[in-house]
């Protein structure tokens, strides 16, 4: 993962320190700190994790362990328009898998990847609670319901 080298700007480092400080630099607040750091940076590269570890006085291994444990945290930058396909059971039985396949084909990336131009990233998530509209695809915050493989092209077109 460390192949993505990130130069952190001075103000980014200051922001990180500020986030840690707002939680009194308590090790028990690690997950809250990571949530805010990810909101700020969009993802959690190794450099960010190192600073958090130093500020909370815990090992980088511990921070990395927590980041990789939870699917919400990511070390790869998401695309400008992150696409998430719901693969909860309701969406699964109504054909979400075929929608994932079509998206993979249309974007030419795998699940968990970002297109080379940084425009789209593709991920699967578990149940957004809109089972009545299954299968469901989210682009950013927008929810698309009753999506069929044929409808994928139309959705992508909206973001071109």
């Amino acid at each position: 993962m460390s192949h993505i080298k990130v130069e952190l700007k001075k103000e980014d480092v200051a922001k990180l320190k500020e986030i840690c400080k707002s939680f009194n630099n308590k090790p028990g607040e690690l997950i809250n700190v990571l949530h805010q750091a990810q909101t700020h940076f969009g993802y959690l590269p190794a450099e960010v994790q190192e600073i958090i570890a130093r500020e909370l006085n815990i090992s980088v291994a511990k921070v990395y362990g927590v980041v990789t444990f939870y699917t919400f945290f990511t070390m790869i930058p998401k695309g400008q328009h992150p696409i998430s396909v719901c693969t909860g059971t309701a969406c699964y039985v109504r054909g979400a898998e075929n929608v994932v396949e079509e998206l993979k084909r249309a974007l030419n990336i795998n699940v968990g990847e970002t297109t080379p131009d940084g425009k789209f990233s593709l991920s699967c998530l578990r149940c957004v609670g809109a089972c009545g509209l299954a299968p469901v695809v989210m682009v950013g915050e927008k929810v698309y319901g009753r999506v069929s493989p044929d409808g994928v092209a139309d959705i992508l077109k909206e973001y071109e």
């Binding site: 308590k26 997950i31 809250n32 990571l34 949530h35 927590v66 919400f72 578990r126």
Partner: peptide, 24 residues
């Protein structure tokens, strides 16, 4: 307290570890 997407955190001991800032 915010979860971060781990199904196992529905188990109460795992949930408590997650709230303490650890792996769930």
């Amino acid at each position: 307290r915010y979860g971060a997407g781990a199904f196992v955190c529905g188990e109460e001991t795992a949930l408590i570890h997650s709230m303490e800032g650890d792996r769930g």
